[in-house]
Write a protein that binds this DNA or RNA. Structure first.
Lengths: 330, 330
DNA sequence: CTGAAAGCGCTTACAG
DNA sequence: CTGAAAGCGCTTACAG
């Protein structure tokens, strides 16, 4: 592997000059610069990342911490972030939290020594800021850009990029009510999810605006995935046979809900309409196709990249609007 | 951030001794070791990754290159590999290939300078070995462990971990035939997929064994995702109205196929049975639930970790068996 | 068993 | 505009 010294020798200059040409810092004569670049090409020189990192005090890697890479929100985000970071020369290190606060802490504790450029925390789980807050602040103090995705941590001084949750939930439930789908159940408040409770508040707001009562038996607290949607909906159907609409806390939950409704001998949407959350890729391909609220991973990815590129001083809170995507299920 | 020198001073030893204690190489007196470990704890010392990497010539990072992180096979693999690598102290860098050979080449060209410990190439696309082969060999020559996942590159000297494809495809199609589902269509040979054509050969073998003719109008070449399954199946249904079974090249394609069958006014499985490939997470939750062939990401992940841990000398080819997972669709 | 010293490959004040 | 030199924080032969 060629070193900066090899390049310097071949170009007849010092290693300092090579470094200046490559970094763009400091002035170098046009002809000298050309000679250096030619030598770089000849030797196929690529700077050693460790040496660079050691000297500069940090590297080109951003850690992305996701709740669960198998969930579509996170894999879509990962994909787009990978592209957006690639465009500004940054690499992506992936950490799967598996919704574990313990794992989050472990990772954040190891982060300072890793020379990261930034940490993007994409988790909708409630974060125990008492223990995690100091860790995040420690990262910021070493000039590591910390960004929250999907959760509002801007009050703790962490730039946050989120989708609208409450307003979106309210809009979707209002739509169900307008379509004559009351009583509407809410499946998937998701205990422990910061986002889940926001969506649920949207549900409550929509009911209140329509003058409908909040019936506890119509609300199901479940966890994230399919089976939870199935079980939660089954329970609601048993407790409230008059339910005509279901707002699910996620598309996965919505799919489970649809299965439960059908296994209950009812039809979607004729008997019970279903709305999901998150516009998952297969949502358009199940039958009936899923009506849901959009998500915008590319927009998030670009916002993250911009924050990393420009350093501190960016907006502390960016809220991305969602659209109600109408398909067959509601 | 504490350095090894800080630790040395606090423990009253030299930095060499600290390094020896931490690495486990070289003998250190029991009492000295204790003093060093205490100092490490006191100062919360974590070795600087760049300095370590520069000195050792490589780091603790493994690059995982996946075809498309949004496909369930890859996200499940990523999740399990993350855990398996974590257990042996390695980090995971993720690169999304987006099924682009061009991108693969770009990434592999940048890899040597990154001080990677290993490169795990999880792609089922046909790899242009004329250009990519030399890049992989260059990595191996710098003692970077290269591992192929999902595709057999063992003849090129690259340890490969794969699932059985042909035998599994044959078994599934034979099952459809046994159940009286002939003629069986094959949707998703997937031009450009090394794995897709293996699965298709299993289909051919099953037909031959059953004495059935290979009817070209029953075979659809499509790309990976849902929409392709929908279109491919629509075409097959139009060209061969007598079709009674569909073997899909993936679960995504199977879901598209089920939608197409239903939009055609037919029922799954009564009129047309469908078998997928890959046991995707939502497969059990659609209705009818998807019959499919299993996949074993945890097994793959452990095999990869073992190869990284033990370095060269491991098995060149590991084949993981698949099970036919019977559910409602066939 | 332990330490002094060199060196991995960069970058950046400093000097000219 | 350019170069000589120091130094980032480790690890490892080498010497004792």
């Amino acid at each position: 592997m060629a070193t900066v010294l090899d390049v310097a020798r071949r170009a007849g200059v010092s290693s300092a000059t090579v470094s200046r040409v490559l970094s763009g810092h400091g002035n170098v004569g046009a002809e000298t610069r050309e000679r250096v670049l030619q030598a770089v090409r000849d030797l196929d020189f690529q700077p050693n990342r460790f040496a660079q990192g050691l000297r500069r005090g940090r590297g080109n890697t951003v850690a992305l911490l996701v709740g669960d890479i198998e969930q579509s929100v996170y894999s879509a985000l990962t994909k787009h972030l990978q592209v957006a970071l690639g465009e500004i020369g940054l690499d992506l290190m992936l950490y799967n939290l598996d919704h574990s606060a313990e794992r989050l802490r472990t990772i954040l504790e190891a982060a300072p020594a890793m020379g990261l450029r930034g940490v993007a925390l994409a988790s909708t789980d409630v974060i125990p800021m008492a223990t995690v807050g100091p860790l995040l602040r420690a990262l910021q103090q070493r000039a590591i850009t910390v960004i929250a995705i999907g959760q509002r941590l801007h009050r703790a001084g962490i730039p946050s990029i989120v989708h609208e949750e409450r307003a979106a939930g309210r809009r979707a439930v209002a739509y169900l009510v307008e379509q004559g789908r009351a009583p509407v159940a809410y499946v998937g408040r998701i205990a422990g999810s910061a986002v889940g409770s926001e969506r649920y508040r949207g549900y409550c707001a929509a009911l209140a605006a329509a003058g409908l009562a909040l019936r506890p038996e119509l609300v199901s607290d479940v966890s994230y995935r399919f089976a939870a949607g199935y079980e939660g909906t089954s329970r609601v159907l048993a407790a409230a046979p008059d339910v005509r609409g279901v707002q699910a806390g996620s598309d996965e939950l919505a799919l489970g809900a649809m299965a439960a409704i059908r296994d209950h001998g009812l039809r979607v949407p004729e008997d019970v309409a279903v709305v999901g959350f998150g516009n998952i890729d297969w949502g358009a391909h199940v039958r009936p196709a899923l009506t849901t609220l959009s998500v915008h991973p590319a927009t998030v990815a670009h916002a993250v990249a911009a924050l990393l590129r420009d350093g501190a001083g960016g907006p502390l809170l960016q809220v991305i609007a969602r659209t109600l995507v109408l398909r067959g299920s509601a």
